[in-house]
Design a protein around this nucleic acid. Structure first.
Length: 715
RNA sequence: CGCGAAGUAGAGCAGCGGUAGCUCGUCGGGCUCAUAACCCGAAGGUCCCAGGUUCGAACCCUGGCUUCGCAACCA
């Protein structure tokens, strides 16, 4: 293996358009932080850089909507994100931002360097323009009717109803998503980076020389390279971003994906005068930690840019994680289906390491994983509290009871196989953990740490010093032989505890701190070179009283979190509302004795006032239930066929706990007929049945007083 | 037929050619130093489906199904 003199770690720049959620942490910040702490413990020369990505169209749109300047948007979220990182213990050497001057200059110079080499191709194209808002529109911001399925809210690049990929030209009645104006075509000039010229280099570099990269990363790159690369525009029409440093380029900025990765360089410049050592010397190991959506930018585009520039090192590895889902559904910021880091920190004060633990133990390293609060509770209570925390605690308690609060002597003459075996295990663990961390297998590495604590518990159980202590002499104290055995057991358990502190430190730094406090040792003991050593705590040294490292997570706490998640996700302004969630809330609420909140709306607070226009968006129709059946493997869902007069529809409804299928056939109901369709348990649901809920949580159909024609509108 | 990743016990994952494994959960027993913690044992799997290669396949090949992701910026 190649020897590196210094390390440069980067973590994907979070987009300053919203706060940080746990998916971000699990995706790249936590693995990056663990790796950084591990290298620091090895006394390596490392820099760990990150910063907010503050450019790009979505930020300008948010600013426009809120009537403020883009800078204000960015200032707000930059502060929130930075604070979340600090509190959860992500140990960046610098957390910078792309709106600062250093970055503008760096990105601009980078562009100029490539421009002066004649690398860009200038091309004039026609793009859609919103004359009202005076801005060019990305495909995503053009809305119209899908030519394939007739969906009126198809985007300029894709119809979300039928999945067809589209171009804005294909849309019927295109409108700007910003102003409802009809977009017009307008000529614009841009600078394209000829990626295809770097294809031979990239193929050699990735496909031949980096077969060690993770499957998902390698596969994704291979797919791109096999398809063939295209020139890619590196500039955009916008007023927000790094200005294109060329004459006659007013109103044009660098494409965010051109400038964002350069943000890593800018941040390093800001951090140290010696930044060039980290970016330009061959014996630097550059590692980009990212999420899977970023693979192409970090493995194809940015390396091609670096290569074109010529002065920079290329990444040695790009360990990308998959995505973390929440309670079975993918994270969606627009639906507020996320666990926000700043809120977690408020709800669980002083519990940073617990979240770090769960996110690492269940990290989406090889495929998408699911975060559930139940799993959070289980892992905390059984693995952290019962295994790790408990081992440390019982070791300390026994040491105080049986060894007068001091590190006992080790009596070499009576060391037995079990004792020696445990020393070996400590050694083995060091090599295993080291090996796994070197391969970016954080989940497995953390498992090894816990497993070592598990072995400690077993050792303690086999030795049972509390029983040995009953072999008393005349004075009522344990006799000499017994005391020697007890000494050995606890001596070994204490040395193991010291080792555990070293091992757990990269993962759970707050816990490691508590442990060294209890052991009255200095930070330096946590240096990785001490790992595996048998004599970390000196004999006769008196230690502090134990302090619990973790506490149990109670049922009520996770119930509250689940409630919060569901409650806030219902209250969204996004029209593409998730009907399953809505119905789930109803059923969940009603299963509780407490009066329903929010959704029930008996005497509860009303949602904010809406205008008639908002109401008019709903198409409410009377329909008759033709058939009903239970949906397999779902307790709460019924699959209904509803006759709406003009058509028959399949609607999936979360009412199975309240009604038997046979008793509702023939019932007239009110259906939200223009609700976006949604798959539940594999069945597509087209609409939603209106229900009323009483104080006891019982559900009633909303239906016309007497029988009327199917398809009648409700207004 | 666009492409990539994934589909293994109730949950989360490992194994990637040679008698199905780990952690949690469940059930039973033991212990009591410890945060009702710890230890031992048991139950639980057509390894997505169908073909093929092989003495032998969860693992290789072919076809299919399902989930997630992929120049819309959301790790």
């Amino acid at each position: 293996m190649k020897e590196f003199k210094r390390y440069l770690l980067t973590a994907a720049l979070p987009y300053a358009n919203g706060p940080l959620h746990i998916g971000h942490l699990a995706g790249c910040y936590l693995p990056a932080d663990i790796y950084a702490r591990y290298l620091r413990a090895q006394k390596k020369d490392i820099k760990f850089v990150c910063g907010s990505d503050e450019h790009g169209v979505p930020i300008t749109i948010r600013a426009m909507k809120e009537g403020i300047q883009p800078q204000e948007v960015v200032d707000k979220y930059h502060a929130i994100i930075k604070d979340s990182f600090e509190q959860i213990g992500i140990s960046f050497d610098i957390y910078s931002r792309t709106s600062n001057a250093v970055h503008h200059k760096t990105a601009s110079d980078f562009f100029t360097n490539l421009y002066d080499k004649g690398l860009f191709e200038e091309k004039e194209t026609e793009q859609y323009y919103d004359e009202e808002k005076k801005t060019f529109l990305a495909d995503r911001y053009i809305i119209g009717t899908c030519p394939v399925c007739g969906n009126e809210n198809a985007y300029g690049d894709q119809c979300e109803r039928c999945g067809s990929s589209l171009s804005p030209d294909q849309l019927i009645n295109p409108k700007s998503a910003l102003s409802d104006a009809v977009p017009v075509k307008k000529k614009t000039k841009h600078w394209y980076f000829p990626l295809q010229n770097y294809e031979p280099f990239l193929k050699q570099w990735i496909l031949e020389e980096h077969t060690d990269w993770k499957n998902n990363v390698y596969g994704q790159c291979k797919s791109w390279l096999d398809k063939g690369l295209q020139p890619r525009a590196m500039t955009r029409d916008s007023s927000w971003g790094v200005k294109v440093p060329l004459p006659g380029a007013e109103g044009k900025v660098l494409y965010v994906w051109f400038d964002a990765p350069i943000g890593y360089i800018s941040a390093t410049k800001e951090l140290t005068e010696n930044w060039a050592d980290y970016w330009c010397k061959e014996d630097t190991k550059l590692v980009h930690f990212i999420g899977k959506d970023n693979i192409v930018f970090h493995c194809i585009i940015f390396p091609a840019m670096l290569k074109a520039h010529g002065n920079f090192v290329l990444p040695d590895n790009v360990p990308a994680n998959e995505f973390l889902n929440i309670e079975g559904d993918k994270v969606s910021t627009s639906r507020n289906w996320a666990v926000w880091v700043d809120e977690y920190l408020k709800d669980f004060p002083d519990q940073q390491d617990v979240l770090r633990y769960v996110l690492c133990a269940n990290a989406p390293e090889t495929k998408d994983n699911d975060f559930t609060w139940k799993d959070f509770q289980d892992r905390t209570n059984s693995e952290l509290v019962s295994i790790f925390g408990n081992f440390v605690n019982r070791t300390f308690v026994l040491m105080h009871k049986l060894c007068k609060g001091k590190v006992p002597k080790l009596h070499e003459d009576i060391l037995d196989d079990a004792d020696k075996k445990l020393f070996e295990e400590i050694q083995n663990s060091k090599f295993k953990i080291q090996n796994l961390l070197d391969q970016y297998k954080f989940r497995d590495a953390l498992y090894e740490v816990i497993d070592l604590a598990r072995k400690g518990n077993k050792y303690m159980q086999d030795k049972q010093p509390w029983i040995v202590a009953r072999q008393t002499g005349d004075d009522g104290q344990p006799n000499g032989e017994a005391q020697k055995q007890i000494d050995n057991t606890l001596h070994i358990c204490l040395q193991l505890t010291a080792n555990l502190a070293i091992f757990i430190n990269p993962f759970l730094p707050f816990t490691a701190k508590k442990m060294i406090y209890m052991m009255k040792v200095v930070d330096k003991m946590l240096d990785w070179e001490n790992a595996g050593k048998a004599m970390l705590l000196s004999i006769g040294y008196s230690l502090r009283a134990p302090e619990l490292l973790f506490r149990k997570i109670e049922d009520e706490e996770i119930a509250a979190q689940i409630q919060k998640l569901k409650a806030t996700s219902g209250n969204v302004q996004n029209k593409n509302i998730n009907s399953q969630k809505m119905e789930d809330i109803k059923v969940e609420d009603s299963s509780k004795a407490s009066p329903p909140i929010g959704g029930g709306g008996l005497e509860g607070a009303l949602k904010s006032t809406i205008q008639y226009d908002d109401f008019a968006k709903l198409n409410l129709k009377v329909g008759t239930i033709l058939s009903a059946e239970k949906v397999e493997k779902a307790d709460k869902l019924l699959k209904l066929e509803v006759d709406l007069g003009f058509e028959k529809r399949i609607v999936v409804s979360g009412i199975a706990l309240h009604f038997k299928p046979e008793e509702i056939i023939g019932k007239q109901v009110v259906v939200v007929a223009n609700l976006a369709s949604r798959k539940m348990r594999g069945i597509e649901s087209n609409g939603m049945i209106l229900m009323a809920e009483d104080k006891a949580g019982k559900l009633y159909f909303v239906s016309p007083g007497e029988k009327i024609d199917e398809g009648s509108s409700v207004t």
